[in-house]
Deep mutational scan, measured.
Amino acid sequence: EKVLKRMREIKNELLQAQNPSELYLSSKTELQGLIGQLDEVSLEKNPCIREARRRAVIEVQTLITYIDL
């Protein structure tokens, strides 16, 4: 939940920025750090946690791809 919240904050900052190119590098670095945090999530045998992590990774990767474009 914390990762998704921060990812959404970054997305809003990028969309509202007057000059978003200044934010791209720092935002991309922070998003890659969020992916690292998601990699540390213990998936164990809980399919709900596994699915939530998968969705979060996809959302963060989508935003990274947007920045790259």
Results as ranks from 00 to 15, higher is better:
residue 48 C to S: 13
residue 11 K to Y: 08
residue 42 S to F: 05
residue 61 Q to R: 07
residue 33 G to R: 09
residue 20 P to G: 06
residue 49 I to P: 09
residue 7 M to S: 12
residue 11 K to C: 08
residue 51 E to P: 02
residue 36 G to I: 09
residue 30 E to I: 01
residue 61 Q to C: 05
residue 33 G to P: 01
residue 46 N to G: 07
residue 29 T to Q: 10
residue 48 C to G: 13
residue 9 E to H: 04
residue 66 Y to F: 09
residue 9 E to G: 00
residue 43 L to H: 15
residue 22 E to C: 13
residue 64 I to N: 03
residue 52 A to I: 05
residue 53 R to C: 15
residue 65 T to M: 10
residue 13 E to R: 09
residue 45 K to E: 15
residue 15 L to S: 09
residue 36 G to D: 09
residue 50 R to G: 11
residue 61 Q to G: 04
residue 12 N to C: 12
residue 45 K to F: 06
residue 20 P to V: 05
residue 15 L to P: 00
residue 20 P to N: 13
residue 31 L to H: 04
residue 69 L to C: 04
residue 9 E to W: 01
residue 9 E to N: 01
residue 47 P to Y: 09
residue 22 E to I: 00
residue 22 E to L: 10
residue 55 R to C: 10
residue 28 K to I: 12
residue 3 V to P: 02
residue 38 L to C: 08
residue 46 N to W: 03
residue 26 S to H: 02
residue 54 R to L: 09
residue 32 Q to Y: 07
residue 59 E to T: 02
residue 66 Y to Q: 15
residue 7 M to L: 12
residue 8 R to Y: 08
residue 35 I to D: 03
residue 55 R to P: 04
residue 23 L to H: 03
residue 32 Q to P: 03
residue 53 R to I: 10
residue 29 T to K: 15
residue 30 E to R: 02
residue 48 C to H: 11
residue 25 L to N: 06
residue 34 L to S: 02
residue 38 L to I: 07
residue 26 S to D: 13
residue 31 L to T: 01
residue 3 V to D: 06
residue 23 L to F: 04
residue 61 Q to N: 14
residue 49 I to K: 11
residue 45 K to N: 15
residue 43 L to T: 13
residue 37 Q to W: 04
residue 49 I to E: 15
residue 47 P to V: 07
residue 63 L to G: 01
residue 46 N to D: 13
residue 36 G to Q: 08
residue 50 R to D: 14
residue 8 R to D: 08
residue 13 E to V: 09
residue 26 S to E: 10
residue 46 N to S: 12
residue 11 K to T: 03
residue 55 R to E: 08
residue 69 L to Y: 05
residue 17 A to D: 05
residue 56 A to V: 08
residue 48 C to T: 15
residue 22 E to P: 05
residue 10 I to W: 01
residue 13 E to D: 10
residue 63 L to I: 03
residue 68 D to T: 03
residue 60 V to E: 01
residue 54 R to C: 08
residue 48 C to R: 13
residue 52 A to Y: 05
residue 48 C to M: 10
residue 49 I to H: 06
residue 39 D to G: 14
residue 22 E to H: 07
residue 16 Q to I: 12
residue 43 L to P: 15
residue 46 N to T: 14
residue 60 V to N: 08
residue 31 L to V: 00
residue 11 K to W: 06
